[in-house]
């Protein structure tokens, strides 16, 4: 029983961080109908930036802040330099998809370069900022609590931005119909870049939280976790913020329980098992809105 509860707690903490990555996928997919494969590498980039600034003695808090902003800017640059020209040319959708794959190659292998961070795994400072909590035989690590709490607060902030602010309104308008939105005076290109910026920031935060929990980083760390978080976004219903949270938590908890009882090989693919089951039962995800195809 204790191992079970331990797995659930672990899953909830990890799931919240997945949700934070998932919203990035979800928002970009919402406005562009594009799976942004570069997102996982931006997550890795964020973690590496924190590592870098800590290693040059900037201090934990400011390192994280700088890393968040840099990752947001990087995500925005990806959109401005690589994706926006494609939108202007009205290229086929798969061109954007391959572009994001190419960008993820550049970032991921760029981090692994001998002159940059090398491909070796690096230690990451622990985020156990206060003592662990013991309930009976159960230990809850403080990094788990931090992960859960920080992600929860940030997701609340994100949903405030999307639902209550003016830029959020523009984002939702662009998501529903980019053309109509631009006719109403919404600067859709700015909105899309802003979406990428928010996604990049939240990916960097998730990268810091998860790296602080595992205390290890490597240039390829974003690949699997990115795909999993994307699965979480789809499970919850893409384009719906709280859907990503539920999806992230479901994926996190199920994979931790599966890893506990079925072996670590099952851990990563569990997200996709859930994904396919949900998509077959509910093609738009748990909370997704039904799309109507118009002639």
């Amino acid at each position: 029983m204790e191992t079970f509860i331990g797995a659930v707690i672990n899953g909830l903490a990890l799931g919240m961080a997945y949700a934070l990555i998932a919203v990035g996928y979800s928002m970009v997919f919402g406005v562009l109908r594009l799976i942004n494969f570069a997102h996982g590498s931006i997550y890795a980039f964020g973690a590496y930036m924190v590592y870098f600034f800590i290693s040059i003695q900037v201090g934990l808090f400011w390192s994280i802040m700088i890393a968040i902003v840099l990752s947001g800017i990087l995500a925005m640059l990806v959109d401005k330099l690589a994706l926006e020209p494609l939108r202007k040319k009205q290229s086929i959708p798969i061109a954007s998809l391959i572009t994001t794959v190419g960008v993820s190659f550049i970032i991921q292998n760029g981090l692994a370069l001998e002159q940059v961070f090398t491909s070796e795994k690096k230690g990451f400072p622990s985020l156990n900022l206060f003592p662990n909590i013991m309930i009976g035989n159960l230990t809850i690590q403080s990094s788990q609590i931090i992960m859960f709490a920080v992600a929860l607060v940030l997701l609340a902030v994100l949903s405030y931005i999307v639902n209550k602010t003016k830029i959020g309104l523009s984002m939702r308008a662009t998501e529903q119909n980019a053309r109509a939105a631009s006719l109403m005076g919404v600067n859709t290109n700015f909105v899309i870049s802003f979406t990428f910026f928010l996604g990049g920031c939240s990916a960097a935060i998730a990268g810091t939280l998860i790296s602080g929990y595992y205390q290890i980083i490597s240039p390829t760390m974003g690949a699997t976790i990115g795909l999993k978080a994307f699965a979480a976004a789809v499970v919850g219903g893409i384009g719906v913020l709280y859907g990503s949270v539920v999806g992230g938590l479901v994926v996190g908890v199920v994979e931790c329980i599966a890893a506990q009882y079925l072996g670590s090989n099952v851990r990563d693919p569990m997200a996709f098992v859930i994904l396919i089951l949900i998509l077959i039962i509910k093609p738009n995800g748990l909370f997704g809105k039904k799309g109507v195809s118009k002639v």
């Binding site: 020209p85 494609l86 572009t99 190419g102 960008v103 190659f105 550049i106 292998n109 692994a112």
Partner: peptide, 21 residues
Amino acid sequence: LNQWRFVIYGLLLVLMMQFRP
């Protein structure tokens, strides 16, 4: 080019999509 070739590989994919999708 050693490790650089994978970076350049990614760059080629991006450029290809820009100019000859």
